[in-house]
Design a protein around this nucleic acid. Structure first.
Length: 279
DNA sequence: CCCGTGACACTCC
DNA sequence: TGGAGTGCCACGG
């Protein structure tokens, strides 16, 4: 034993890591197709932790790993398969999501290996540990916006319990760890403009179109300064993209510039889209 | 219609 | 460590 090199001595110490240790040291990552093109996805045993488009990191997995490490302080290691439900959530191939029929990527070998579905049944489990309470509240509110619909930043602020923290909402969404899975692209400006997006406004518009949101119809309303729609038969006022607003017949559709205008005329806020706090 | 200012959680020095 | 700086905004003048 006396003449061995340092390397030999060290290699003598090397051994198989205890089962489960590797998962404690490394975070798994993989590349997957999505509505934003290829994305890189990092995930732990808890769920998906970080998603970025390949484009946004120069299609360089090393850059993704660096961004991940900057933020989470851990290295990445390639892993074969992500949490259950990841692939369809990324491609939009989930029930309730009206995606306009592009190719249906087969999500590889079957197997509900890890994770239970989220409460709403749509999408993989998420690992959002380490976020502040405010960030949690903002992301939770954002997550509840249905596909094909949009809500203003001010709405998210109110739903998050901090109605005046509008700009802070923008800051949080600008750092959304899991875009697509938490649909920050469905948060828009109160004046009707789509606003900014982590991967650029063009992608925001593309994602919304892909969800069958009629941007032209919305723009038509915005041009007239109308940001709410009511039904004079039900006396309910909604955001224009609300599921219920879409069902109002032409004869009974009443556009309003401000929700207060509708309330003053006896309308009540829709319980689904909550354009205002109930009176 | 644009500009200035308000507002606030988070991030860095 | 705290205070200035910053940001996918909103609203009034």
């Amino acid at each position: 034993m006396k003449d061995q090199t340092i390397e030999q001595a060290l290699s003598g110490l090397a051994g198989r890591a205890p089962s489960g240790l590797e998962a404690k040291v490394f975070t798994g990552w993989l590349a997957a197709p999505s509505r934003l093109g290829e994305v890189y996805v990092a995930f732990t045993g808890e769920g998906v932790q970080f998603v970025r488009s390949a484009e946004s990191v120069g299609s360089d997995p090393d850059a993704f790993a660096e961004a991940y490490r900057d933020r989470f302080g851990r290295p990445l290691r390639a892993a074969g398969r992500g949490p259950a439900g990841l692939a369809p959530a990324l491609t939009g191939a989930v029930p309730g999501h009206r995606s306009r029929g592009d190719a249906e990527p087969d999500d590889g070998p079957r197997g509900a290996a890890a994770g239970t579905p989220r409460p709403d049944g749509s999408g993989p489990r998420l690992d959002l540990r380490g976020l502040s309470d405010f960030e949690h509240d903002v992301l939770d509110a954002t997550r509840r916006i249905p596909a094909g619909q949009v809500r203003p930043y001010s709405w998210v602020a109110r739903e998050a319990g901090r109605p005046k923290a509008v700009r802070a909402v923008g800051s949080v969404l600008g750092r959304n760890p899991v875009p697509l899975l938490i649909p920050c692209h469905r948060v828009v400006r109160s004046d009707g403009a789509l606003g900014e997006y982590m991967f650029g406004p063009a992608h925001k518009q593309e994602l919304l179109r892909d969800e069958d949101l009629d941007l032209d119809r919305l723009a038509g309303l915005v041009d007239r300064g109308m940001h709410y729609l009511g039904s004079d038969t039900t006396g309910v006022v909604c955001f224009p993209t609300c599921h219920h607003a879409r069902r109002i017949t032409d004869a009974h559709r009443r556009p309003f510039p401000r929700v207060e205008t509708a309330l003053a005329q006896g309308y009540r806020p829709c319980r689904d889209c909550r354009p205002a706090v109930p009176a």
